[in-house]
Write a protein that binds this DNA or RNA. Structure first.
Ligand SMILES: [Mn+2]
Ligand SMILES: [Mn+2]
Ligand SMILES: [Zn+2]
Ligand SMILES: [Zn+2]
Lengths: 137, 137
DNA sequence: AACTTGTTTGTAACGATTTCAAATTTGGAG
DNA sequence: CTCCAAATTTGAAATCGTTACAAACAAGTT
């Protein structure tokens, strides 16, 4: 768990209270939250927090590469702390989004049909192991 | 190119003018258009066409499995005629979306980490071959 | 013709996001 | 420390894609 204030300074972002809290939230909640989810979670301890600040801050973090923005399945952007490339699996029962290892081999091939592939987004859907157990019972 | 009126009747959808035109458009334009793009393209020859009709019609077609709805990279739903499963590549220069063959082998594996995988969405991003040529010149 | 049903339409509402300008906070220079 | 310019935050309004809704329309049945 990297020191948040240091991380912000390294990226030439002033470590304001709201920026620290937002990044801290992403570090502690690996749930791919939307901007609004983050806003709601922080609203209690920061009653004057503005939704705009959350959006602005997330945008800044993504521009600096601290976070990544994902368009997974629905029409809303989700954010996560920028880690190793990985793929996503969404359970259609419980809605939970899981991180999976990126271990498929066409991925190493960066030229397909003559197009230069720079980014891969692999999104899977199905029933997660927890829901499988419940259904089997 | 399947007869559109027959196709609609097979699916118990009355082949109204607007439904035929919308499906015809999707059959002739393999560009993964949004609802609004379809609306705009048809607005000339059907001046009274309503955006709502386009949305309703697309929804019906997706429900019947005639079309598939895709959330590719941005926050807008794109539609395409339902064909073989394939993956998508978006050029970040020209914005064009290409269809690519689905030929990666983890795809055959329907159980990952204990989760049952039912649907795969693979979206690639990069520079398409046309734009590569232009840039190289 | 009067009813029934399905279809289309336009407007209003919606949720996620952006724009904008005003208010606040901050970090230096003096 | 005080003052000020720059950065940051805020809330309201605007925008964008989409959906809800109810009225208007079309077509078929009695
Ligand atoms: Mn993830
Ligand atoms: Mn396609
Ligand atoms: Zn589940
Ligand atoms: Zn291109």
């Amino acid at each position: 768990m990297k020191n948040i204030i240091e991380l912000l300074k390294e990226n030439n972002i002033a470590p304001s209270m709201q920026r620290v809290k937002i990044l801290e939230y992403l570090q502690n909640h690996k749930t791919h939250p939307t901007a609004y989810m983050i806003y709601q979670s922080l609203a209690d301890e920061m009653p004057t927090l503005s939704k705009t600040t959350v959006y602005n801050t997330l945008k800044t973090f993504v521009e600096k590469g601290i976070l990544v923005a994902l368009t997974l399945f629905e029409n809303e952007v989700r954010y996560e702390y920028n880690t190793e490339p990985h793929i996503h699996f969404k359970c259609t029962k419980c809605g939970k989004i899981y991180d999976l290892d990126k271990s498929f081999d066409y991925c190493t091939n960066d030229l397909i049909d003559g197009h230069k592939v720079l980014e891969h987004y692999v999104n899977l859907k199905g029933i997660c192991k927890n829901c499988l157990v419940k259904a089997g019972a």
